[in-house]
Design a protein around this nucleic acid. Sequence first.
DNA 1: AACATGACGTCGC
DNA 2: AGCGACGCCATGT
Length: 115
Amino acid sequence: MTKAHNKENIYDVIYEVVRAIPKGRVSSYGAVAAAIGAKSGARVVGYAMNNCTGVKPKVPAHRVVNRNGLLTGKHHFETETRMEELLKKEGIKVKDDKVVDFEKIFWDPLTELGL
DNA sequence: AACATGACGTCGC
DNA sequence: AGCGACGCCATGT
C-alpha cells in the first residue's frame, strides 16, 4: 500500500493536472507526465490513474487517454463501457475505443496551464 | 536490495 | 502501415 500519510505524492500532482482538464477535452498520459516533470513517466501517470479509483475528489481519468487517443484504460473502470459513456456524455465522440478528433479536443496542460 | 509488472512512448523491422 | 522490442519512472512482492 502507499505511504498513506505522506504528503504531495507524485500522484497528487497528477490528479491535480487531470482534474484541470476541461469538460469536453482530453489529454494524454505523456502530456500529463510532462506537466508534472516526469516527461518519461507516462507509465507512472497510468499507475496513478489506477489508484485514483478511490481518490477524492473524483478524478476524470476517462479524459486521459494514450498518445493514440485510444481508451487503453477503459478496462480499469467500473465497466468497460463506462469510460466511453462518460466521454460521449461530455460531448466527446468515441469510435472503436478511440477518441474522435482527438487532436482537436486534445488538451495540453503544458500549453494551457502556461508551463 | 533485486526482480517483475504496468491505464505509455518511441524507435526499429 | 502494422507488429515487435526496448526504455522510462514508480509500485509491489
